[in-house]
Amino acid sequence: MTSPAPGITAVDIEKWFQLHIASLTGLPPEEVSGAADFESFGIDSVQGVDMLVALENWLAMPDDIPMELLFEAPSIAEAASRVADCKARAARS
């Protein structure tokens, strides 16, 4: 994964999730729908926490994304939006 551009958006994060889940599941990225939730891809907790850590590293915000923010989101797109908000808050503080 490349480093994020400063103006990273929820759309970029959603794309990151799709690529990450595609690499975990072997599905083509276009089949990882942003409308689906993480659970529907059968990702277990260890894969989930690894995904979180990889995302935090990509966004250069270690320890700063609460895991439940991903898992309680009704869809990947919504999770991406919440992560973008989280990043914006972290940038302001």
Binding site: S45, V46, G48, V49, D50, L52, V53, P66, M67, E68, F71, E72
Partner: peptide, 14 residues
């Protein structure tokens, strides 16, 4: 341990 602590935090939060 790092994974375990992050997972546990989420388990309690949820």
């Amino acid at each position: 341990y790092y994974r375990y602590l992050r997972l546990s935090a989420a388990g309690f939060s949820m």
